[in-house]
């Protein structure tokens, strides 16, 4: 959470809102914020912290772990039409990579704005592809995997 919070300004600049969700109550969120998070992040976690005490939201998103009674680490990128464009679900011991989240936001926003498609590992400024019949069998002319562009 704090890793995402530390990059929040960058996400807001891309018109991304962050909503965190766990099975803790809103009261527990508040004490975590005031007792710990505010000491790690100036002003505390800046985005809404949601409570899914019944696990029912996690169930619908396929992240609720019945045995542990918790929501697993799941990240869903949702576009302005409310469509899920990306999802990633990890077991609890491994944290997320916020760099990869932000890279995906750039890529999905590029696709949405241009209709181009982005090859593996694409970053802003690199070559994106125009899907067309002519591109079939000709990707090698415009994109090399080892160069990443």
């Amino acid at each position: 959470m704090t890793a995402v919070a530390a990059r929040y300004a960058e996400l807001r600049a891309l018109d991304v809102e962050v909503l965190s969700v766990s099975t803790d109550s809103r009261f527990v969120h508040k004490i975590w914020q005031t007792d710990e998070l505010e000491r790690m992040i100036s002003g505390g976690v800046p985005f809404p912290m949601l409570s899914d005490q019944s696990g029912r939201i996690g169930e619908v998103y396929g992240v609720y772990d019945d045995a542990g009674g918790v929501d697993l680490r799941g990240r869903f990128l949702i576009d302005p039409d409310g469509v899920i464009q990306a999802m990633e679900i990890l077991t609890p011991a491994v944290g997320r990579n916020v760099d990869e989240l932000i890279r995906q936001v750039h890529a999905f926003q590029h696709v949405r704005a241009t209709g181009e498609v982005t090859p593996s590992g694409w970053r802003p400024g690199q070559t994106a592809l125009h899907p067309s019949p002519d591109l079939a069998g000709a990707v090698w002319k415009v994109w090399r995997p080892e160069a990443g562009h």
């Binding site: 891309l14 803790d24 697993l72 869903f76 989240l101 926003q109």
Partner: peptide, 17 residues
């Protein structure tokens, strides 16, 4: 709706990853 959203589930407050 009308904005991008990152929905982040996590196992619990006071955990460290």
């Amino acid at each position: 709706l009308g904005h991008w959203v990152v929905l982040c589930f996590y196992p619990g407050d006071f955990t460290f990853v």
